[in-house]
Amino acid sequence: MMPFWALIADSFREALDRKIFWVMLCISILVAAAMFCVSFEGTADGSIEELNVFFGAYRVRLSEAAPGTVIPRETIIGGVVYLVMDHVLGGIGILLALIATGSFFPSFLERGAIDLALSKSLSRPLLFLAKYLGSMAFVLVQATVFVGLTFLVVGFRWGMWMPGYLLVIPLMVLLFSYLYCVSAWVAVRTRSTLAAVLVSLGAWVVFVGLQGLGDVFELMPQWKENRTLYTVARVAGWVVPKTQDITYFAGRWSGAPAPADVMPKTRVPTPADRELIDKAGEVDRQRFEQRALPSIGSSLLFEAVVVAAAMWTFSRRDY
């Protein structure tokens, strides 16, 4: 196992060498600092009454912003944590990580570098696997720092300890791995950083799009009449990694409310629109409450197939 760990440690060193790694750490610290500047003032019954920004410099009374609304403390704090986790870590964080790690395989495969690695005693599939897992170290460190800092802020500053929130760390690594397998496969085939980054980002858009398409079918019953299209959409949605589901699981296991529960009840022009919004909320809730195993299992199956294809190419190619 010594060569295997040496490769993983090397990938970690490579990650530390990237400027983007430190930029992302700074973003994590800034987000945690921004959260630290916010506090919630509540009533005796546990609901939030006032929002303080910059240690009281700005105050927002929720009873004035939305009269008659009583928001439980857990709901608002959980909602904020969910939003930050979803957008900053699950969005910007994963995007930057894909860009940063996109060059890991191409630089590993450069002529002169790969010669030495291949001439050692580790088999090619294991060599690939070690490099692949080593690249995950980048996201593991970033997610640990981000979640660790925000977990402490939410606990100490906002007075709410959310141990389930720590599960976001492995979930974000999992989300990254769904996309990184595509990046690695493209890199092994083309040895191009640009191609690896662009195709993996494109794949992310496609994965999200296919999942969204499935939801659209649920909202538009008339579309279901085209059985072929509906079946293709459902199968495609099942085959590709469910990237969106990861943030739902992360929110649910953290103890955050379902997004539909914290959406403001805005006025809508017609009862039909109201019905559509309610239905969308229901679809969203179903996704939030769905079982994790089928979603993660089918996504991992996709990842395993892509990794196997990349490993096969890596093992058969001359360098």
Binding site: L7, D10, R13, D17, G112, A113, A117, S119, K120, S121
Partner: peptide, 30 residues
């Protein structure tokens, strides 16, 4: 291969390592 030493032509070593780290890295690989 553990008993063979190899210096390829036009080798490219990772620039982020020090000389000592590089020797440890490739040593661990064998």
């Amino acid at each position: 291969l553990q008993r063979i030493g190899y210096l390829p032509e036009g080798h490219r070593f990772p620039g982020y390592l020090t000389g000592m780290q590089l020797l440890h890295y490739y040593g661990a690989l064998v």
